[in-house]
Amino acid sequence: MFDISSDQFQLNPNYRLQYEDAQECHVLLYPEGLVKLSETAVAILTRCTSPTNGIDVIAGLQRTYPDAESLPADVMEFLIDAQSQSWIVAVED
């Protein structure tokens, strides 16, 4: 398990994140399954398409949404869940 705050991670390269016209939303595709993503999830995951870490993701989102008070905690909660489901994986040095 990597440290979400400081370790480098990225979207699982074996998964696909894309917008689907038919479903009118973004989906995350993984082996034999998919999940429809909320706008919040998309905002976070699109920041993980290249190597990053939790602190940078939060800082970036805070610039876009300066009034969202609970943003750091919400994002961390999402990233912990994303890590447990292998949506995001550690970037090897």
């Binding site: 689907e20 016209d21 038919a22 479903q23 989906v27 595709l29 034999e32 399954g33 998919l34």
Partner: peptide, 8 residues
């Protein structure tokens, strides 16, 4: 075009 995303 129909929206299929998973292909086996």
């Amino acid at each position: 075009k129909l929206g299929a995303v998973q292909l086996g």
